[in-house]
Design a protein around this nucleic acid. Sequence first.
DNA 1: ATGTCAAATAATATCGATATTTTGGAGGCC
DNA 2: GGCCTCCAAAATATCGATATTATTTGACAT
Lengths: 221, 221
Amino acid sequence: MNVLQSTPGKETSATRECYQTLRQKILTGALPPGKKLKIEELRGLLNSGASPVREALSLLTSDMLVERIDQRGFRAAPISKANFEEILMLRCTLEDKALRASLARADTTWEERLVLSHHHMIRTKRQDVEAFETAHKAFHMALLSNSDLPMLERYCSQLYDLNIRYRFLAADGPLYGKRSIASEHENIMNAALEHDADATSALLLEHYRRTGEYFSAQMEA
Amino acid sequence: MNVLQSTPGKETSATRECYQTLRQKILTGALPPGKKLKIEELRGLLNSGASPVREALSLLTSDMLVERIDQRGFRAAPISKANFEEILMLRCTLEDKALRASLARADTTWEERLVLSHHHMIRTKRQDVEAFETAHKAFHMALLSNSDLPMLERYCSQLYDLNIRYRFLAADGPLYGKRSIASEHENIMNAALEHDADATSALLLEHYRRTGEYFSAQMEA
DNA sequence: ATGTCAAATAATATCGATATTTTGGAGGCC
DNA sequence: GGCCTCCAAAATATCGATATTATTTGACAT
C-alpha cells in the first residue's frame, strides 16, 4: 500500500521520536541536570501531544536520565561526583566481564565487525560531534557485541550514555585531547584481535579511568 | 492538612498502582512469559484508564519484565535457560561488589538493620508466600544496603526480581527445600556481622549458585 | 515586618474518543 | 491448488479535555 513513504514525514512512532530527541537533549546538556521537565513546555519543543511526551519520559527514567517524582512531574537527572564515580566503577566491572565473554567467543565475523566499526570511527571527522560520538560508541559496543549476553550489553550501553553525558557537560573545560585517544583505540582493537583478554581489558579500563580521573578532578571545582 | 487520609481509598497514583499490580502478576506468573498484554484487557483487570496502563507497561520495560514492540504493543518478557544463566551470572558479579562495599562501610546502624530484617524474615510464615518473599528480598537487600552505591543497588534489586520470577515459574517442580535455607541465611548474616567480606561473599554466591543449578537443571526438561 | 492561611494559579494525572496501524481472512488471479 | 491482494475487525497510538493535586500569591492577624 504505502509507496515506501513518499511523504518524508513520519517513519517512526511519536513516542520513539520524543524519546530519542529528549535523550539527546539530556545527554548533550541542552536540558541541564535537575531541570524541571514540564509537559506543556516539552509539547512545544517536540511538537506532539502530551501522551507521547509522558511515555518518553517514563522510558527515560529507566535509563536513569530522568527522575520521576510521583504527582510532581519529571526532571532531568541530577549529577554529582559520587554518581560519576559510581558509573565509572560499574563500567569497569561490567565492561571487563562483557569484553572477556566477547573475546572468548571470537570469530572472524566479529573481528571484521570490530575492524569496520573502528575504520568508520577514524573516518568520521571529530568536528561533527554528533556523528563522531555515534561512531565512537559503536566502536566500544562492537568490542562487547560478541558476548552473547544481551542484558549485560544493555547495562554497558546504558552506562556508556550516562558517562558520555558527563563528558558533554564538562566540554567547556580545558581540552582533554592531549592524550592520543586515537592510538589508545588502536591498541585496544589490536589486543582484541589477538584475543588477548587480559591485555585488552587492561587497556580498555585504563582508557576509561584516565578520562575518569580527568573529569573527577574537574568536578571538584 | 490532610488528616492522615481518613478516606482509606487512594493513597497513591493510578500509574503506580498499575505498575505494582502488573509487576506482581508478571513475577508470580499470573501473566505468563510471552503473553500478549492488551491494553483493553488490562484496563479491565486493574480498573483504570488506558493511560496509566500504558505508562506502567513502559516502566516495566525498563525492568526487563515487559517487551515493547513498536506499534505492536507489549508482551510479558519471554524466558529461557540462557536468560536465567545470564541473570545468575550478573547477580553474582554485582552482589559481590555491592556486598563488599557495604561491609567496608559497616557500622552499628547497618548491623542492626540487617539483624532486624533477618528477624522479620524468620518470623514470617512461609505459608504466606507473598509476605515471606517480601521479607526475603528485604533481607538480601539489607546486606547490600550500606554500599552507598545507589545504581548498583538498583541493578541488584532488578536482578533479584528477575531471578525470583524464575523461582515462581518453577514452583510446581519438586520442592527444593531439602537444603536448610534458614541456616544458610543465618550463616551469611553472621559472616557479615563479623565483617568477613570473603566469607560472606562466598556463602552468598554459593547460596545463589545452588538454587541456580537446581533451576537450570529443571529447565532442561 | 513576619508568619500563616486561603484563594487563585499552574501543572500533573487521568479519562474518553479518534485516527492509524496491524492482523486475519475471504475472494480473485495466475 | 497455492499465492497475492484487498477488505473488515481489532488493537495500538495519539489527541483534546477534565479532574486532581501542588504551588504561588496576597491578605490578614500577630
